[in-house]
Amino acid sequence: MQKLLELLKDGNSRTLEILADELGTTTDDVTRQMEYLERIGVIRRVLQPFENKGCGTCSSCSGCSKNAAACKGCIPQNAALNMGEMWEVV
């Protein structure tokens, strides 16, 4: 896990597969290590702007469940749903 953390700190981005490859292990192993690191607060998942707060966060917005066009600052509903997940070192 120390090695995993070192890779994370070198400033490059990697996919799970690439990490597994560089660490000589499986993606399952990387996943469980990341789960642990996340639990102990060393890394965290990056909340995307559209998650939980896609709407209603800008001051001009009164919530757009009914009228998505009301607020230009809000990220449109159903946008960017399939973009994968990201983690970063805390």
Binding site: D10, R14, W87, E88
Partner: peptide, 10 residues
């Protein structure tokens, strides 16, 4: 300030 990222591609 730069740290690496992990991405899980869908």
């Amino acid at each position: 300030d730069r740290c690496g990222m992990i991405m899980e591609l869908p």
